[in-house]
């Protein structure tokens, strides 16, 4: 008899809680739009936050509510946008796949430093101390805050300048928002040319602090048949809508600051000859 009371009480407790929970799950049921989990499943699930929402589930909710566009996910690209469009029953505009590009070539041996930095290992902290230790006011700080922020582990710091692995980059733009120097830009994924410099200083100043910085000599602008390269201030900028990747500017640039990559398989690869020239 003695063993019966505890068994009954425990079993009774379990039964009561079971019934209460079963009733509660019916009574407190929240109606969920079934399109939300469907859209969440289609999204990449990296929760990178590149779309501006806290994660893929939050974006899915916003898309279903109509607050976000179905092509808001830059990581998923056209395939995901189309799949979402199918679920939502609407047509979707095409988007251009983008990739992040670090617009700086000032590696440790090509630039000078203003002072010896010994603070926290973080670009944002370093940039607050007189703009970082690199003599160039616009160059990559090289402490890898973008690499830490990248949800796809696509960025590594090599010789003082961050480099993006194009095979891994999904173009979410998290690094662009993180970089205190604004030296990373999103450019169309297939474009093979970019200016590896962000220096806004005059040519003479840039020449002093960096061996490869853009001096605004306009040679690229003069030689471009398509009008795709323009020097704004004292910095060359490529207009990717006009650029046809002919590569003339790469040869003409006296500072070897215009980079060229070639398409290889599923992504871009920097050619060895270009690396040798830098």
């Amino acid at each position: 008899m003695q063993i019966l009371t505890p068994i009954l009480i425990l079993a009774g407790l379990g039964l009561v809680f079971g019934i209460v929970l079963a009733v509660a799950s019916k009574a407190f049921a929240v109606e969920v739009d079934e399109r939300v989990p469907a859209v969440t499943d289609v999204l990449p699930g990296a929760n990178c936050g590149g779309c501006g929402y806290s994660g893929c589930a939050a974006l899915a909710e916003a898309i279903v509510k109509g607050e976000a566009k179905p092509n808001a996910c830059t990581v998923g690209g056209n395939e995901v946008a189309e799949a979402i469009g199918k679920i939502m029953g609407i047509s979707v505009e095409k988007t251009v796949r983008k990739r992040a590009q670090v617009m700086c070539s000032g590696t440790c041996d090509l630039t000078t430093s203003k002072y010896i930095y010994e603070g926290a290992h973080d670009c944002i902290a370093a940039a607050k101390l007189g703009g970082g230790d690199k003599a160039c006011a616009n160059g990559c700080v090289g402490l890898g805050t973008c690499a830490d922020a990248c949800p796809f582990e696509a960025i590594t710091v090599e010789n003082g300048v961050a480099a993006v692995d194009y095979h891994k980059c999904r173009g979410c733009g998290v690094c662009v928002a993180t970089c205190p120097k604004h030296v990373i830009e999103l450019i169309p994924y297939d474009s093979a040319h970019w200016i590896g410099c962000k220096s806004a200083e005059k040519g003479a100043v840039t020449r002093k602090v960096c061996e490869v910085g853009c001096i605004g000599c306009r040679l690229c602008e003069k030689n471009c048949e398509y009008g795709a390269v323009k020097v704004e201030g004292s910095l060359a900028v490529i207009d990717y809508e006009k650029c046809v990747d002919c590569g003339v500017c790469v040869e003409k640039c006296p500072r070897h600051i215009i980079w060229s990559a070639k398409s290889q398989g599923d992504g871009l690869t920097i050619t060895c000859e270009v690396l040798k020239n830098k």
């Binding site: 407790l13 209460v20 407190f28 929240v30």
Partner: peptide, 23 residues
């Protein structure tokens, strides 16, 4: 029996609170 009974109570309670808050 307090340990095993409390585990039961807390587990059920947390589930209940979760549903309640969600609604």
């Amino acid at each position: 029996l307090k340990t095993v009974a409390f585990i039961l109570v807390i587990a059920a309670l947390v589930q209940f609170i979760e549903m309640f808050l969600r609604k």
